[in-house]
């Protein structure tokens, strides 16, 4: 499914629609430790986290992730939004907590299996 369709069906808030917006995405990961995500992140993967500071954008950019979803209603810091725009990384948000969001994304075909 295309990222923009996942955004619509999962009722995600769009902070920035980046270059992955029209791309197919079928892989997800959840983590708040940046070392874990930098080691495990795969190309075109959607990353769910509660971290909101600007360093998450560098991780997504370096690992070519499809985008970042801030769970539990978290809002990005201003620096994070600025970085996402500059790097053109898709930055999204959800009112749901990580577990609820994963449940919803699995229903849309976003898998945890690489």
């Amino acid at each position: 499914m295309k990222l923009k369709d996942i955004v619509e069906k999962a009722d995600l808030q769009v902070f920035h629609a980046g270059e992955s917006w029209e791309q197919e995405t079928g892989l997800g990961y959840v983590g708040d430790l940046l070392s874990d995500v930098i080691a495990s992140g795969r190309k075109d993967m959607l990353w769910i986290t509660i971290q909101v500071h600007e360093n998450i954008v560098a991780v997504a950019s370096l690992k070519d992730l499809a985008g970042i979803i801030l769970a539990k209603g978290n809002q990005p810091h201003d620096d994070t939004l600025t970085a996402a725009r500059a790097e053109n990384i898709t930055l999204l948000g959800s009112r749901l907590n990580a577990y609820q969001l994963i449940e919803k994304l699995i229903g849309l075909g976003v898998s945890g299996n690489a």
Binding site: L33, L34, S35, D36, H53, I56
Partner: peptide, 12 residues
Amino acid sequence: ERGFGAGLGLPN
């Protein structure tokens, strides 16, 4: 709190 310092860096 920023998601660093889990003791994974050097081993990674």
